[in-house]
Each structure stands twice: as structure tokens, then as C-alpha cells.
Write a protein that binds this DNA or RNA. Structure first.
Lengths: 296, 296
DNA sequence: AAAATAGTGTCTTTTAGACAGTATTTA
DNA sequence: TAAATACTGTCTAAAAGACACTATTTT
């Protein structure tokens, strides 16, 4: 082992260093102020293209012959437009918006000046998930409602100056949380489907996280983590629509959600609408979150 | 950083070290000679219990509040017996058997003498998948037909003497490959559903890999990696039955596989049976392996 | 009443699964 | 021909989806 301050010729003998990064998703209105970052570099070829692929973004080295994806399930219509549901915001309740994610501007090389996923090292006394949560708090002031390991990225050339293996988590936060982090320094929210060039392989990572999010929303009940404690079924449907990028039949969606048993009516209704008021629901925590699916 | 030969008081400042491990599955006849290893320690409480849970084995720290599983999909019937299909082996073609996995006996502390998953360090110039494949070859003489990242395990107390983060892969090998490794030193094949106490948290890891395998077999077309180049539909069905631990209707299975388009008839038939000969099929490589599902 | 969304009913298509029936081989 | 497995036909139930319809509120 040639640790610590090894020079270039010694680096090949070093063990890869470990880091944690997190892809954080939130739903935000589309007219956000962070448009600066979008236009400053504009969408590169590496960015997420509109229209979702049926296969996961390639994430593994070529020697991993068969599928780096952990559990490909339902795929998306490749012809779906980016965010059709978002273009007709509801007039009363605020529109749930579309997918955004926070990035941090790098203040040193490599990729100094570019934006990167929040992350950092792993402390000696914290597990991987703890490290992800702590880094999240420290860099973006966010406490996610949902946090799950995404993938370990470890190709040799991920960083130009050293060998880094990144264990990446993905997280969902609700809008009130997300607003808190807007104030944080160096943190910018970018629209997930129109990213600029990010540092390292972080565009690839975001693509993969997006694929996983869209995939999991279709068979699992995680979309409510984008919302607050209570919500209407229309709001929950809008979340699904924003994530999946297509409109969903309200009647069928209602039946699916209610029959899944993952949601409980509070008995209250929303007021102040200019039409029939909707019932307010709450997510049912007692459901085992790992086995929950819309389709059994 | 306090690298290299740090003493105990300095260890808390070291970055976690990285390792690769792999859970390798093969289908083998049940009357194998490795029964020694099974009885020597017998099934501990940590071993895989018969009957499959509907939720994945817990794999994350408690702070990862919501689901460490990467993509929970179809769950299994919790009441299914362990391996009913195996108990009635076909009389002509050799029975596909049941799930076994190779382990390596540790020759140093910690857990000296116990069996552990094959693994090792990551070299400076190889990606994670490459490292998994190389370690596999070196320790067990196996070249898997399927190799995929499973999960990064990184709780603080995984190893008693140091902090280790293991990036675990899972692999499938066909029986002819598996036979080659029987000769390898220190390698023992154990039945996946009756494991002894393994070193580190490797029982937990195997449980999780088993859950993923069973889960993925239900929506993806990976089971053929347990077989050779060509196979009959009955053989393929037996593989599914052995993995899932339940019998499958032959007619319905045939229709599902054929309509999935993942398999092509070679035109040949098996000979030497005492009944109507079956057609021989070959897996269709051109199918995108990540999007393939039995159920759409 | 008009507008607008909430919520229900119902029909069609697709899929999984149960299970009976036919086909083709060897002994 | 009997036995044994390969393969096909067909019915049922469950689920997804399209879409028309009713309900309840404000303006």
C-alpha cells in the first residue's frame, strides 16, 4: 500500500478511494429561478434525452456482460413526451411541477466550476446510508423522506486524477424540504430532464437514477414521498404523471390506489376550490414498503 | 489520513477499505458430495430459512428508513415449499437439481476456518465488474455466464478488526462450469437453502442474493444461464421450478416463454427418451436483456 | 345554469392460471 | 397397447385501460 501523499507514479498501487454521492429528486414548479444554470451550459449530449428508454442507461463496464441494472421491471413508453401533464397546471392547488435535483458547484479540481452531485467521504463510524444522509444534510441542508442505495460506480476513469469508487444513493424530498435548501450556499436546483454537463460521470448517474425512479414508481408506492403529510388523489396522480411523463386516467388511477390499501382517507376535504372538493388522504405507513406494488 | 500499518487507536481515522465479493449460483444434483460442509455446522439461525419472504432480507442500516432493496418487484408465495419439483427428477434428461453456491474456507483471522464468499481486493486498473470476474476465476476457477452488481454492504461492524465496504456481485454459472470448480482447492459447494454459519455477514448477503435471484427470475429471462447452449422447454421449466421452489404448469410456461420471443427452436429434437421427444431451443441473444420480462 | 373537477360504472383487451385433451415416441 | 412426456385448446379470473356517466361544488 502506498497511501497518503503518493505521487503520480505511485497512484496505480493505491486502493480505490471511497465516496458517497446522492441523487436527490424533488418536484418543483417549472418557472423556477435556477434557469441560469440550465442556459449557462445548455443540454449536452450526455444529458437526459426526452423520451424514456426501455432499457436502463448503461452503467457497467463492458465486461459486465449482462445488465448492470439491479432489477429492471416495467419499462416506459419510448414515445411519451417529456412532461405533458405539467403544461396544464391545476388552477387551485399549486401544480406539483416537474422533477428537479440539487447540485453543488465544485470549488476545486477536477471539474472545478462544474456542478456535481452532493457527496463526500464516509466516516469511520457511519454506515453507507448514514453517510449519504449526513452528506445530504451538510451539503444541501436536506433531510430526505426516502433514501435508497442506487449503485456502486467504479470504472477506472471516473476521475482524472485518482481512482474513486462512488456508492450512490437516491433520495426523494418533499417541496417544503426542498425550499429550505434553496437558501443553502453553492446549491442549485436543475431540471432533471435538461441538465447541463456535470462533473465526473454524474450525468450517467442521474440518467440511471431517473430510470430507477420511473421504474419504481410504476410498481411501488413511493411517489407520495414527493408530497407532504396529506394530499388529494389528484395531487398524487399529478406526481405520477410528472415522474412518468405521461397522463394517467383519473378514474383508473383512483381505483388502483384505493384498492392497493396504501392510502387512508382523513375524512377532511380541501376547501376554496371553485368545484367539487376532493377528499384528503394520508399515506398508510403500516404497509411494508418493500413489497408494495400497484400490481400484485 | 492514517494509512498503512495503523494501530488500533488509529483505525477509527482510516477510510473504509474496499473489497469485492460474489455470490455464485449453480444448479446441481442434490446428492452432491459436499454434504460434509452442511452437517459440520448445520443450519444456523442466520441461514436461509425455507419458505420465501415477501420482503427482501434486511440489508441496510436502520437510518436507511425506506427500503434498501433496489427494485422489489414480484414477491413469492410465502407458503411455497422449498424444492418440490426437485423431488421428482425426470427419468431421462438429468435433473437440473437445486441451487448450490461455492464458498471458500478462510485460512486466516477473522473467522478463520469458516467459509466465506469468494472475493478479494480491487486492482487499480480494473472496474468493479472486472474485479468480481477476476476474483471469481482466481478463487473458484469459474467464469460466470451472468454477472451483475447486487449491493454495497457497509455497516460499521461487518468485520471485527477493520472497516470494510464490500461491493457484492451475483453470478450464475452453468453446470459444466460448476464442475470445473469442484476440483479447485478450498472451494466447497453448499446448498443455498441449508447454509452453515458463514464468515462476516455473508449469510445475510446470500439471503439477499437469493431474494434477488428469485425475484428476477419471475420477470426477466435469466434462468437459461443455468443451462448450456441448448435446452428443452422442460429443462428450462425445471430451472424455474428449482429457483422458485414451486411447480409450474408446463403448458402455460411453454406459452409464456414462446410468446416472449427470447428463445428460438433449433429444429432438432432430443433422442433416447422413452416418450415423445422434445424440441431443442436456444436462447435468443438479440433480445435486450434488461427489458425482458415474462409479464409485460 | 355553466364550469370545473371529483368520483363511479362499465365495457374491452390482455394476461395468468387451471385443467382437459391430443400427439408422438419407446417398451 | 400402455406409459410417459410433449404439446394444444379452452375456459375462468384478474387486471389494465378506454371512456361515458353522475356528483358536488363555486361563480
Amino acid at each position: 500500500m502506498y497511501p497518503g501523499s503518493a505521487n503520480v507514479s505511485e497512484r496505480r498501487f493505491e486502493a480505490p478511494s471511497l465516496a458517497i454521492s446522492t441523487v436527490i429528486f424533488a418536484l418543483r414548479p417549472n418557472d423556477s429561478s435556477a434557469a441560469e444554470a440550465v442556459t449557462s451550459a445548455s443540454a449536452s449530449a450526455e444529458s437526459t434525452a426526452p423520451g424514456h428508454s426501455t432499457a436502463p442507461p448503461s452503467v457497467a463496464s463492458t465486461t459486465e456482460a449482462h445488465s448492470a441494472a439491479e432489477s429492471a421491471t416495467r419499462a416506459h413508453s419510448p414515445t411519451a413526451p417529456a412532461h405533458p401533464a405539467v403544461e396544464t397546471p391545476s388552477t387551485e392547488l399549486p401544480s406539483v411541477g416537474s422533477l428537479w435535483l440539487p447540485v453543488v458547484r465544485r470549488i476545486r479540481e477536477p471539474y472545478k466550476g462544474l456542478q456535481a452531485l452532493p457527496g463526500g467521504p464516509i466516516a469511520w463510524n457511519e454506515s453507507l446510508g448514514d453517510a449519504a444522509g449526513r452528506n445530504l444534510r451538510e451539503t444541501t441542508n436536506l433531510s430526505p423522506k426516502y433514501l435508497e442505495q442506487l449503485y456502486a460506480f467504479g470504472t477506472v476513469d471516473r476521475s482524472p486524477d485518482r481512482r474513486v469508487v462512488s456508492i450512490v444513493y437516491w433520495a426523494l424530498v418533499d417541496p417544503s424540504e426542498a425550499d429550505q435548501s434553496v437558501a443553502a450556499e453553492n446549491v442549485t436546483w436543475l431540471p432533471a430532464d435538461r441538465l447541463p454537463r456535470l462533473a465526473f460521470d454524474h450525468n450517467t448517474i442521474v440518467d440511471y437514477a431517473l430510470w430507477r425512479l420511473r421504474n419504481k414508481v410504476e410498481y411501488s408506492q413511493i411517489a407520495h414521498h414527493f408530497l407532504g403529510e396529506t394530499f388529494t388523489l389528484a395531487q398524487l396522480r399529478e406526481v405520477h404523471e410528472a415522474v412518468l411523463g405521461r397522463s394517467i386516467d383519473p378514474g383508473n388511477f383512483r381505483r388502483q390506489i384505493l384498492s392497493s390499501g396504501t392510502v387512508t382517507a382523513t375524512g377532511e376535504k380541501v376547501g376554496g376550490t371553485r368545484h367539487r372538493p376532493a377528499h384528503i388522504y394520508r399515506f398508510n405507513d403500516s404497509i411494508d414498503k418493500d413489497s408494495e406494488r400497484l400490481a400484485p
